[in-house]
Nucleic acid binder design. Structure first.
Length: 434
RNA sequence: UCCGGCGUAGCUCAAUCGGUAGAGCGGGUGGCUGUUAACCACUAGGUUGGCGGUUCAAGUCCGUCCGCCGGAGCCA
């Protein structure tokens, strides 16, 4: 009386050496050598080569193996054998093979494809090795973010996605209707976190954010994910310490758990391992001086573009924190530096290797009169911000926080040129599908 | 929105000075007992992005529209 072989995943195949097991998955690639057939089987946890000799299996089984199309779904039973020639150290000696579904001719061949074609087939592209690795790193980063904040006393306070007005006056918002009135997709949950931190001390939100800017660069998506911690009684120095600790925790976690994926992506891991605290702190004034020395046409009062960010970060192997920007180029809610009224207590974190700004944050204006002046000066509708100014009426305290862009962080850690590959289904200025 | 580049087979690309549209991959058929993007042979596959113009002749030159890529601005 024989028992059914256990169903196992490729990731745990090494625990079953010498045993007969059943794998369920999709045909990644195959090749035949006459009376010998190799099937590369993918199950989501890994890829293993399955080998069939014509003499060892039923003729129907061999014919099926020979005729399987790329990405056909199958159930395979066979013996797990150690083999030096295998990239994962094992292969499966097939005894039985059954078809779940024969795939139609698969559009994505193992050869090169253009970005547009691949993006049109994003739902299928996600199955490929590189995209699979990127999504796993992304998931690990998300998990590290949640674990860090949950473990450091930050309470998850979800911010709304539908909002009545801009969080920051300047950026373009996606507009939609809401039972006869105008509504907008959120471009930041921060204002709501300020309410949250007055209730919980420390809180965060982590969700999608929308910007209708017509940006066409490797750093921009119209829909992206941002994590935004906020803490009452936190000052700028503490904010910078928090972001440093936070980024290091994310990086350490990926290096600890996603080495294999980084290898698949051919990421130079030594560059990530070289990242160490403390991150350099550089004031905006110093940054402008640095740029001038590098013969950049930087003037005090200008915001930094991509090239400037790259220059500022290029002399460092770790992220660089730039702080105290001119008030005129920053959002209305930022608190002025009491030592210099021309600048605000804000900070940006620039990732190394030219990945640019991954974090923006700082101390929020906690004085009611100053905040109301700023709202008016930015031409924002005071009525829709009355709840926000209320936070300064009822027990206002100094507080600070930041927002970290998930996709830019994923791009940096994975070493990707463009953020469009860091999110499962990217939304770009000229892409809404699939 | 602005600047630059590109658009040829399902995919990635080639086509000399304006002169018979081609290759590799993928598909199909056959061969092969150790392949790793296998290889070999045969085979099918085209309104050269659309419209208009110049010319004996346009994939190639001109105009225009559409689409994509890269960059700028703005930002995470």
């Amino acid at each position: 009386m024989s028992t059914e072989p256990p169903i196992v995943s490729i990731a745990e195949i090494s625990r079953h050496e010498g045993e007969v097991v059943t794998l369920r998955g999709w045909l990644y690639n195959s090749t035949t050598k006459g009376k010998l057939c190799f099937l590369q089987l993918r199950d989501g946890t890994g890829i293993i080569q399955c080998v069939l000799f014509k003499k060892d299996v039923e003729i129907e089984t061999f014919d099926l193996a020979k005729n399987l199309t790329q990405e056909s779904s199958v159930i395979v039973t066979g013996e797990v054998r150690a083999d030096e020639r295998s990239p994962i150290g094992f292969e499966l000696g097939v005894r039985d093979l059954s078809l779940v579904s024969m795939a139609e001719p698969y559009p994505i061949s193992p050869k090169e494809h253009g970005v547009e074609f691949l993006m049109d087939h994003r739902h299928l592209w996600l199955r490929s090795r590189r995209q699979h690795a990127i999504m796993r790193v992304r998931a690990e980063i998300v998990s590290a973010i949640r674990d860090y904040l949950d473990g450091h006393g930050f309470v998850l306070i979800d911010a709304p996605i539908l909002t009545p007005a801009a969080c920051e006056g300047t950026s373009t918002l996606f507009e939609t209707g809401y039972f006869g009135q105008n509504a907008f997709l959120t471009q930041s949950g921060q204002l709501y976190q300020e309410a949250g931190c007055m209730a919980h001390g420390k809180c965060y939100c982590f969700g999608p954010t929308f910007r209708a800017e017509k940006s066409k660069t490797r750093r921009h998506l119209t829909e992206f994910w941002m994590v935004e911690p906020e803490a009452a009684f936190m000052d700028l120095d503490e904010d910078m310490e928090l972001v440093e600790d936070f980024v290091m925790a994310i990086l350490d976690r990926v290096l600890e758990r996603r080495r294999e994926e980084l290898e698949t992506l051919e990421r130079d891991v030594s560059k990530l391992e070289a990242v160490a605290r403390p991150f350099s702190r550089m004031s905006y004034d110093e940054a402008v001086e640095t740029l001038k020395k590098a013969d950049q046409p930087a003037e005090w009062g200008d915001d930094f573009g991509g090239d400037e960010e790259t220059i500022l970060a290029s002399t460092h192997t770790s992220p660089v924190i730039i702080h105290r920007f001119p008030a005129a180029i920053k959002a209305f809610y930022m608190k002025r530096d009491p030592d210099n009224e021309k600048v605000v207590l804000g900070m940006d974190v620039l990732a190394p290797e030219g990945y640019g700004e991954i974090v923006g944050g700082g101390v929020r204006e906690d004085d009611l009169a100053s905040l109301e002046r700023a709202i008016e000066k930015h031409g924002l509708p005071g009525e829709v911000f009355s709840w926000y100014t209320d936070l300064r009426r009822y027990g206002s305290v100094p507080h600070a926080g930041f927002g970290l862009g998930l996709e830019r962080t994923v791009a940096w850690i994975c070493g990707l040129k463009h953020v469009r590959e860091t999110i499962p289904f990217p939304r770009l200025i000229n892409r809404l599908g699939p």
